[in-house]
Design a protein around this nucleic acid. Structure first.
Lengths: 158, 158
DNA sequence: TATTGTTATACTCTATAACTATA
DNA sequence: TATAGTTATAGAGTATAACAATA
């Protein structure tokens, strides 16, 4: 919108918008930032569907992990995990092996190619978050993650 | 799973899962908590589609606000805002009036019923977040929101 | 020519339910 | 009987593009 050339008061939407009760709600405050991060990451790494990066990282950090555990940690339904795994195998980034101890289970492993991809995606994620992290001091970052620990623990008591 | 009756070492997924690189990523840490909050809120208030509560709160706090401004603040496409507004009008919670100063715009207003609904939804949201907030000291809550301010500001420099 | 809001549409994301094979 | 994974399907959620009215 061009600068106003009249003396008419600007419309309400030219003012700073009041957040009202949303200002104090964790959910709203999270969503705005999370949306922004998701979009940024998706632009940097369009080949990775949501959940793909998380799943790959968890497989990398927990060789032999099962799909059910992945489902719990990533926060997606087990059926959704199936399609994420299909994608990871198609890309050659992870593989399913029958668990010898429980033949119902798939033991999941990251491949050499998958590790390379994970490193790349991790780098994208870091660069995507860099501006936000740099807005905080070292101490604030530490505090922040400590608070997130507490919050997540409170989500699943017991 | 029943408690193991053998001496066999538990499968990998019985151990605490390693988050690996995800542990230090804001996006992942946010998503897990945000997912949990979204689901809880949706159970408490299934009549409110995502964005409905936010939109209503913003209209209440900014009488006469436009759909475009709403779109920017809620973080949804303007076409998505149209359907949210349709819903709000159908419920009798908000109304569109032609802006007299710019007849392209709709000036949005909350209704008396809408204000009641907003209070109710706000209460749901507070109760939904209560366990998480109570995990933090007063000081931590203050720090946390201050840090969120900084982070959001860093999302949209300028 | 640019902007507000609308429509139509399609695509992405995610969950539910029913199934299989194992336990 | 219960659990791990799969399939098929449907439903949410969201965006894109073309459009009309207005600036």
């Amino acid at each position: 919108m061009p600068p106003s050339t009249t003396n008419v008061a600007p419309a309400a939407e030219d003012f700073e918008v009041e957040l009202g009760v949303l200002n104090e709600l964790i959910g709203f405050r999270f969503r705005r930032i999370h949306n922004h991060l998701s979009r940024g990451f998706n632009e940097l790494a369009p080949e990775a569907k949501p959940g793909t990066f998380s799943a790959l990282a968890l497989i990398g950090a927990n060789p032999g992990v099962s799909q059910t555990t992945l489902s719990r940690e990533v926060g997606f339904d087990k059926a959704t995990i199936v399609s994420i795994l299909d994608g990871l195998e198609r890309l050659g980034w992870a593989e399913r092996r029958r668990s010898p101890s429980d033949r119902r289970r798939h033991a999941l492993y990251i491949t050499r190619e998958g590790q390379k991809a994970l490193d790349r995606l991790h780098d994208h994620a870091r660069r995507n978050e860099a501006p936000i992290r740099q807005a905080l001091t070292e101490e604030e970052q530490t505090q922040f993650f400590r608070i997130l620990d507490k919050m997540y623990a409170a989500c699943f008591p017991g």
